[in-house]
């Protein structure tokens, strides 16, 4: 019988452990990298994961579908070479057919349906929405790459050299930062649209409006990224673990590879990812004011803007691109937040 309040030593506690017991105490876990950890955390975050799947689905379909879709985004279905314009193709409701198509169906042929109908010029609306999604996504993606590259370059130069260079760059950044961005964007794109002459260059196919949009982004939006990168570099340089790594004899390359990059790249990539929806937002806003992509190329904003004229008769033409923009922006934002939670452990509570 064991007495509870005895001072006698319980000799059982001092029996050497068996091998089995020792085994039990050893924590065997496969080593995990920072990246794997992040992916695991991201995978656990249901909202971010679903958003990611939605983004992938939208992106893949906007790239793949135009390849096998029987209609193209600028093809006016009623216009046949050598014949008068067949106006029966204009403003078709969803799943309606033009006269000649109806004839072919009656003859037993199968005709690919116009899922969302056609627009006022007789173009298949579904493919225009898909193509507009592609344009909007591409604009968002490239704009954020431009911002990322310029911001990282200037920010790291500023943070690395410090001193006078840093001061001058940062005063410059302060001024650009305090400019009302949207007004400047509108002003610059209105002017660039007039003055850009791209004819003869390979950029002509992209259209001067999109190029001017990129220029505007490159001119105005790098400041946020530059500030972020500079701040990261400044604070990381002074961290204790960098000092401790130096003290234990780590070389510069090791410190950069194992300490600076992993700690800084996630923040930068996340804020670049969050730049994409804001660029899509800006593009759709400019398209709505008539400063977006060039006709006949559609973007989600210009589709919504065009739909305004016939809003009472064809409300779905506004609602479809509206849902698309909201879906893209929402899932990109949620995914960006998820990325931040997963890859920025310092923010985790």
């Amino acid at each position: 019988m064991k007495k509870k309040f005895t001072f006698h030593v319980d000799l059982d506690s001092f029996i050497p452990a068996t091998d089995e017991e020792k085994e039990y105490l050893v924590q065997m876990r496969p080593s995990s990298t920072f990246f794997k950890d992040g992916i695991r955390r991201l995978y656990k975050n249901k909202v971010a994961f679903v958003s990611f799947i939605i983004i992938v689905l939208i992106t893949v379909s906007s790239i793949v579908i135009p390849f096998f879709w029987p209609y193209s985004y600028d093809q006016q279905l009623g216009v046949q070479p050598g014949k008068p314009v067949d106006s029966s193709y204009k403003n078709l409701s969803p799943f309606e057919y033009g006269e000649t198509e109806q004839q072919r169906i009656d003859d037993g042929e199968s005709v690919f349906p116009h899922i969302f109908g056609t627009d006022k010029s007789g173009r298949d609306y579904f493919i225009r929405v898909i193509y507009g999604t592609r344009v909007s996504l591409a604009v968002g993606f490239f704009a954020s790459i431009i911002v990322l590259v310029i911001g990282m370059l200037i920010g790291s130069v500023s943070g690395y050299f410090g001193g006078k260079v840093d001061m001058i760059i940062m005063r410059f950044v302060d001024v650009i930062y305090s400019l009302p961005d949207m007004l400047m964007v509108i002003l610059l794109s209105a002017v660039l649209k007039q003055s850009l002459d791209l004819s003869g260059t390979f950029l002509e196919s992209v259209g001067s409006n999109i190029i001017s949009l990129f220029i505007v982004f490159a001119l105005l939006y790098w400041v946020g990224m530059a500030r972020l990168v500079r701040g990261q570099i400044l604070s990381l340089r002074e961290q204790e673990y960098v000092l401790s790594a130096k003290a234990t004899g780590a070389k510069g390359r090791w410190i950069i590879k194992k300490h600076l990059i992993p700690n800084c790249i996630s923040v930068i990539i996340i804020s670049a990812a969050l730049q994409i929806p804001s660029a899509i937002f800006t593009e759709s806003y400019l398209s709505f004011l008539g400063l977006g992509v060039d006709a006949p190329m559609p973007s989600l904003g210009s589709l919504a803007s065009d739909a305004l004229n016939g809003i009472s008769t064809y409300p779905y033409r506004l609602i479809i691109p509206a849902i698309m923009i909201s879906l893209i922006v929402l899932s990109l934002n949620l995914f960006g937040d998820g990325l931040r939670d997963a890859f920025d452990p310092k923010l985790n509570d």
Binding site: P315, L318, I319, S326
Partner: peptide, 13 residues
């Protein structure tokens, strides 16, 4: 996540 012009037109509609 909804641009103001879309919100506006939807409300109008």
């Amino acid at each position: 996540s909804m641009p103001s012009f879309i919100m506006g037109t939807l409300l109008l509609l």
